[in-house]
């Protein structure tokens, strides 16, 4: 009998939570959608800037071993710092708001892209490079037709890792005033409202999974030659 009572209690909780979620969403749909939009925008911006920095820098590093050691060392040490710490460290440097959050997220997103780009280009067999040269390709053709497509799968792995990391970390960026789904989560924590925690948390998870799926599909398309 007692077990059944617990069951009943649990079911009641679930139903009441669902009702609260529906109630919140119907009352605050605009706020919610705006939070999703802000979250997506800041994540995509950070990722885009990180790609623009990480890939050219990675290509440069793959051709310049000394410089590569210096840069990867530097970015790897940045990686050790937890994302929350980077975000908080931005406050004395840049204050609060969207810009410092964007900078912090970009710093988080660069290392995976950079390191994978270096690995992608450095991993191309020297013999392939020599064959291309021996066949009469110029430097530009070797880069566009051989090196870029061969390094692309690893570069995409880097972008994938960064995308997941950024979309998750964007939640805590709300701490320094970036807005987004983090706002809903932190409000839920402050007011002890489980429905807000659920709405925020599940949405962030959905964005991360979505990013993973989209980039995974792209990666599958460019690595067709590696499978049967």
């Amino acid at each position: 009998m007692e077990e059944c009572g617990l069951c009943y209690q649990f079911m009641k909780e679930v139903i009441s939570l669902s009702q609260k979620i529906i109630a919140y969403l119907s009352a605050n749909m605009t706020t919610y959608l705006q939070a999703v939009q802000t979250h997506l925008m800041i994540s995509i911006q950070a990722l885009w800037i990180a790609v623009m920095i990480g890939i050219p820098l990675g290509i440069f590093c793959s051709r310049n071993e000394k410089f590569s050691k210096y840069v990867t060392g530097w970015f790897n040490s940045l990686r050790i710092i937890p994302s929350l710490a980077i975000l908080v460290l931005m406050i004395p440097l840049m204050g609060t708001g969207k810009t410092p959050a964007l900078v912090a997220l970009t710093i988080l997103a660069v290392p995976p892209i950079l390191i994978n780009t270096i690995a992608g280009f450095a991993g191309i067999e020297a013999s392939l490079y020599e064959t291309a040269k021996g066949m009469g390709m110029d430097e530009k053709q070797i880069f566009l037709k051989i090196e870029w497509p061969l390094a692309l799968p690893l570069m995409l792995t880097g972008v994938r890792t960064s995308a997941v990391e950024v979309s998750a970390s964007a939640t805590i960026a709300a701490y320094i005033g970036a807005g987004g789904l983090g706002n809903i989560v932190f409000t839920g924590l402050g007011l002890n409202k489980a429905e807000l925690l659920l709405i925020g948390g599940v949405s962030v998870a959905a964005i991360s999974i979505g990013a993973e799926l989209i980039l995974g599909t792209v990666q599958n398309a460019v690595t067709k030659y590696q499978r049967d």
Partner: peptide
């Protein structure tokens, strides 16, 4: 140098085929 190399066929061990290109694309490189 680049134009000169195109006048010479070059074959290496294992064929040195480009893994991301199909057979037809590999043959069509030059």
């Amino acid at each position: 140098v680049v134009e000169y190399r195109r006048k010479i066929g070059y074959v290496v061990q294992q064929g040195g085929l480009f893994p991301h290109m199909t057979v037809a694309e590999n043959i069509a490189v030059v």
